[in-house]
Simulated scan of single mutants.
Amino acid sequence: MYKVKVNEKYDFELLEENGAFKLAGQDLQLDRHEPGAGHVHIIYNHKSYRAEVVSQDQDNKTAVVKVNGTLYNVAAEDQYDGLLKAMGLTGAAGKMALELKAPMPGLVLSLNVTEGQEIKKGDSLLVLEAMKMENMLKAASDGTVKKIFVAKGDKVEKNQVLIEFSA
């Protein structure tokens, strides 16, 4: 699921399943044609839209998109971004994080790193089961795993320190 904000004004929840999209729980019936990189032609509700990605910022997950000649500022957030926000690891704070804390109470299903291991931003650190859902917690920045405070099968509380890093 993606939370999408357009022009800091309009909020949408977009779900992708098997190549099909749902907006606010309803199927989007789109006919798409991609004539070239960064360009797409869409027919939706019998109307034609030509879209072009003018610029994008991968780190901040934002883009400027031109649709039928009008520019739109688009920001997208996936489930992992939501977890990072819940842990207070957004923006500059995420780049300087020296600890990974549990975003919610749960059960550690697996550890994917070891002490002393070098990690890159986006690497999978561990899987936490909470409310019958598996949540993969990823590295917010590059660094080294200094200390691991949990093991597979441990129950953890919200805000409990799971892993400590050194920059």
Results as ranks from 00 to 15, higher is better:
residue 4 V to F: 05
residue 8 E to A: 10
residue 8 E to Q: 15
residue 11 D to S: 07
residue 11 D to C: 04
residue 12 F to H: 14
residue 15 L to E: 11
residue 16 E to L: 13
residue 17 E to R: 10
residue 19 G to W: 00
residue 21 F to A: 02
residue 21 F to V: 00
residue 23 L to G: 04
residue 24 A to E: 14
residue 25 G to V: 04
residue 25 G to R: 09
residue 26 Q to F: 07
residue 27 D to N: 12
residue 27 D to C: 04
residue 28 L to N: 00
residue 28 L to G: 02
residue 28 L to F: 08
residue 29 Q to C: 10
residue 29 Q to W: 03
residue 30 L to G: 04
residue 30 L to P: 05
residue 30 L to I: 06
residue 32 R to D: 07
residue 33 H to M: 04
residue 34 E to H: 03
residue 34 E to I: 08
residue 35 P to C: 02
residue 35 P to D: 00
residue 37 A to N: 14
residue 37 A to I: 14
residue 39 H to G: 00
residue 39 H to T: 03
residue 40 V to G: 12
residue 40 V to L: 08
residue 41 H to L: 06
residue 42 I to V: 11
residue 43 I to P: 01
residue 43 I to G: 00
residue 44 Y to F: 00
residue 45 N to Y: 02
residue 46 H to E: 14
residue 47 K to N: 04
residue 48 S to F: 11
residue 48 S to Q: 10
residue 51 A to Q: 08
residue 52 E to A: 07
residue 54 V to Y: 09
residue 57 D to Q: 14
residue 57 D to T: 10
residue 58 Q to N: 12
residue 61 K to S: 12
residue 63 A to V: 05
residue 64 V to P: 04
residue 64 V to S: 08
residue 65 V to Y: 01
residue 66 K to R: 15
residue 66 K to A: 03
residue 66 K to H: 13
residue 67 V to Y: 10
residue 67 V to I: 15
residue 68 N to T: 05
residue 69 G to F: 03
residue 70 T to L: 10
residue 72 Y to T: 02
residue 72 Y to G: 02
residue 74 V to Q: 05
residue 75 A to W: 01
residue 75 A to E: 15
residue 76 A to R: 11
residue 77 E to K: 09
residue 77 E to P: 06
residue 77 E to F: 11
residue 79 Q to C: 06
residue 80 Y to N: 15
residue 82 G to I: 08
residue 84 L to C: 14
residue 86 A to L: 14
residue 87 M to I: 00
residue 88 G to H: 06
residue 89 L to P: 08
residue 90 T to M: 13
residue 92 A to M: 10
residue 92 A to Y: 11
residue 93 A to K: 09
residue 93 A to H: 06
residue 95 K to P: 07
residue 97 A to Y: 06
residue 99 E to N: 11
residue 100 L to C: 01
residue 101 K to V: 02
residue 102 A to R: 10
residue 102 A to P: 06
residue 103 P to Y: 05
residue 105 P to I: 06
residue 106 G to A: 09
residue 106 G to K: 10
residue 108 V to F: 07
residue 108 V to Q: 02
residue 109 L to D: 04
residue 109 L to Q: 13
residue 112 N to K: 15
residue 114 T to W: 07
residue 115 E to I: 05
residue 116 G to F: 09
residue 119 I to D: 02
residue 119 I to L: 01
residue 119 I to G: 01
residue 120 K to F: 08
residue 120 K to V: 15
residue 121 K to F: 03
residue 121 K to N: 08
residue 121 K to W: 11
residue 121 K to T: 11
residue 121 K to A: 14
residue 122 G to W: 13
residue 124 S to C: 09
residue 125 L to Q: 01
residue 125 L to Y: 01
residue 125 L to G: 04
residue 126 L to V: 13
residue 126 L to I: 09
residue 126 L to H: 02
residue 127 V to Y: 01
residue 128 L to G: 05
residue 130 A to S: 09
residue 133 M to C: 04
residue 133 M to E: 02
residue 133 M to W: 00
residue 135 N to W: 07
residue 137 L to W: 04
residue 137 L to H: 00
residue 141 S to D: 06
residue 142 D to I: 13
residue 142 D to V: 12
residue 142 D to H: 14
residue 143 G to A: 02
residue 146 K to N: 12
residue 147 K to V: 06
residue 149 F to Q: 10
residue 149 F to G: 07
residue 151 A to Y: 00
residue 152 K to E: 11
residue 152 K to Q: 10
residue 152 K to D: 06
residue 154 D to T: 04
residue 155 K to W: 00
residue 155 K to D: 04
residue 156 V to N: 04
residue 158 K to T: 13
residue 159 N to I: 12
residue 160 Q to A: 11
residue 163 I to G: 02
residue 165 F to E: 06
residue 167 A to T: 07
